[in-house]
Write a protein that binds this DNA or RNA. Sequence first.
DNA 1: AATATTTTCAACCGCGGACCA
DNA 2: ATGGTCCGCGGTTGAAAATAT
Length: 270
Amino acid sequence: MGRQPCCDKVGLKRGPWSIEEDHKLTDFIVNNGIHCWRMVPKLAGLLRCGKSCRLRWINYLRPDVKRGALSEMEENQIIQLHACFGNRWSKIASHFPGRTDNEIKNHWNTKIKKRLKILGLDPVTHKPIEETETNPELDSSIEQEESLEVTSMKDCRHAQCEVQVTIDEKQNEVNKIMVTSNESTDHHDDLLHNYEMLCPSLDVGLGVNQETNTSNSYYSPTFSLENSINPSSMGTQDSIQQWVDSVDSMLSWDGFNQLEDELFFLDNSH
DNA sequence: AATATTTTCAACCGCGGACCA
DNA sequence: ATGGTCCGCGGTTGAAAATAT
């Protein structure tokens, strides 16, 4: 015969844990350790199944569990790791001591996913949504399956590069707008003015916040105008460089909150 | 202030692999 | 080798909190 059943669900309590239950479970584990989750509720005097106790301990009661919002650095790291491992949350969580897979999964589903969508990126493939939609080869489900096969560090770095390239592509789009605007100084000035109106907190005219431009390790790719801006118009180019630097910092994770705030009305318009 | 809607996140569910008798 | 249980994982749910109307 096999082992005994995990638990008899009849008569067991479900739903949110009370403070008293938390104390019982914590006291028991602190004093006895964990040998068999099936036995924990019986020995601790709890009307819960072992599975529920395990979940409560790992996600909430564990003394080394890290509380509070995830930092921007952590968010960036989650995105990188998601590009490598897909939805393998426990794998991703293992890179964040004190953070639980449940917490990271929730954070991804409620926040990061939305931000990537606003950026025009598919949260599953990490590629531009238009590309995924127009190219059946890049169907999300297929991509997701493929991402599960990515295991080696080489592949991982490759996946990270792909995300990097996607962000670069986004900035190239900004570049194209810049080139178009470069055809007319007036138009260019209008563009800067409009952008300044959109983002009043950015000092477009007097200089750029270089700190935000360098503080992000992943979403602040180095950006060159050499291949996209006509070098003959240096005066204009300086302004454009500043503008693009601003956009660069806005596209970085640091600046995204600001961009999101500034452009919220665009999202509400449809 | 009251109500509706959206967001957040703790907890549950079911599956698959590991393990045991 | 087989059948059964346990554990851990990822997907999903739903109540509570926050925000909008």
